[in-house]
Design a protein around this nucleic acid. Structure first.
Lengths: 217, 217
DNA sequence: CAGCCATATGACTATATGGTCACAGAAAGG
DNA sequence: CCTTTCTGTGACCATATAGTCATATGGCTG
């Protein structure tokens, strides 16, 4: 947790520090991300940074929580009434989550970088685990309602689906020829992909999850 | 490419250098992996290292190629006659690949670390791309033989399957409570999981890919 | 033995980092 | 106007790194 001093800061300054740090961590590995660079770009003194945070790790951890919180509350707010059908519900959740990423390249590139960074495996594991358990809950409900095959291993399915939900971002980036990082670098306000394009990929993914790929004849 | 000097080395010494470096890169991020540590552990002089490699990156790149080559040739050798059925073939490929990982924790933790490390995104992308295109070929053949649903997007399917093939390692580790790294640390000769346990997970995964999870009634 | 060449070496350099600390303002309030 | 408390500062420190280089070693050849 940051020190109280950090929260006493005027909003604009606090936000500037957060954004500058996010950018540094989005573009660099944890190890290569440099506090010296962050304070330089934010225009504050090194010492000030240590009035706000005890060390680099605390800053990093705070950023992860900060952005995760943003994303989660965005999803909760944007999610319409709950659907009963698992696949429809899943689609809506992912759609909203992807929308968040598209609107907020800074946040999404940061989170992407966090997911990959093996500096602190516990953090990325925690993120994946909570995502998997969220999906597991959805699956269990659907299972009890007969929407899921009886011989499905729910734990494995939840695991697969949560990983796929992350990987699909990579696929979209490749298919439409961009990366979050390059968008960030270009200073564009958001990722150049339309709702329709997003929905198309999502539908294919869900069809895969639903029915598999084997021909049924 | 390493300098000629490196290949002139006696096998034992060359291997010692490779293994020591692999271990350092398996446990650490590219940035945090230290040449000083490597030469210390391998018992050679810093300067010698620079007789073999031009810089840290060249060493790293060489290791990636070296281990990939080992894995690929292992798979090729261990693969029995080619099956016609996509799902059987896929199972065999993954089984053999996983077998390789299980037998060679050093190699697999290194490759795992490479896949995550965002130091040089081009490298991990290249690995994933070649894996996806390999599966795409298999899929296309199967498609033309009517094994795959006609409305499947082969590119997406290949992408999904290749990513799943990597992610499943994480699942197995979680399910059986180990990580490659901890196995490496414990100096055990290989990962404690039986062929049967592996096959069980694989069958579930393939069933997922084949038929999806939706109930068909 | 002399000369040559490939290899080995480790002290050294330049550089950068995370983190510290003694001090300077500034705001508040008595 | 003085004192206390909180915040800002940047020079500075210890440390570690990737990479260099002048020199030493040792084997081979004529």
């Amino acid at each position: 947790m940051p020190k109280q001093t950090f929260f006493n800061l005027p909003d604009a300054k606090r936000r500037l520090i957060i954004d500058t740090a996010l950018e540094e961590f989005a573009f660099n590995t944890y190890d290569k991300a440099s506090l010296s660079q962050i304070v330089l770009k934010a225009g504050i003194a090194k010492g000030s940074m240590y009035q706000y945070f005890n060390d680099k790790d605390e800053l990093y951890t705070y950023l992860v929580e900060y952005v995760s919180e943003k994303k989660l509350s965005f999803i909760n707010e944007a999610l319409p009434q709950l659907r009963n059908d698992f696949f429809l519900l899943y689609k809506e959740v992912i759609f909203v989550a992807a929308r968040f990423d598209i609107i907020n390249p800074l946040y999404s590139s940061f989170l992407y970088s966090v997911g990959k960074d093996s500096h602190n495996p516990a953090i990325s594991k925690k993120i994946m685990a909570s995502s998997a358990s969220f999906i597991e809950q959805m699956l269990e409900k659907a299972y009890s309602q007969g929407q899921i095959r009886k011989d499905i291993n729910i734990k494995l399915a939840a695991f697969i689906i949560s990983y796929l939900s992350v990987d699909v971002g990579e696929y979209i980036g490749e298919k439409y020829g961009f990366s979050y990082l390059s968008v960030l670098k270009s200073k564009l306000p958001n990722v150049p992909i339309s709702d329709n394009q997003l929905e198309e990929v999502l539908d294919e993914l869900i069809d895969f999850i639903k029915r598999g790929i084997a021909s049924t004849i």
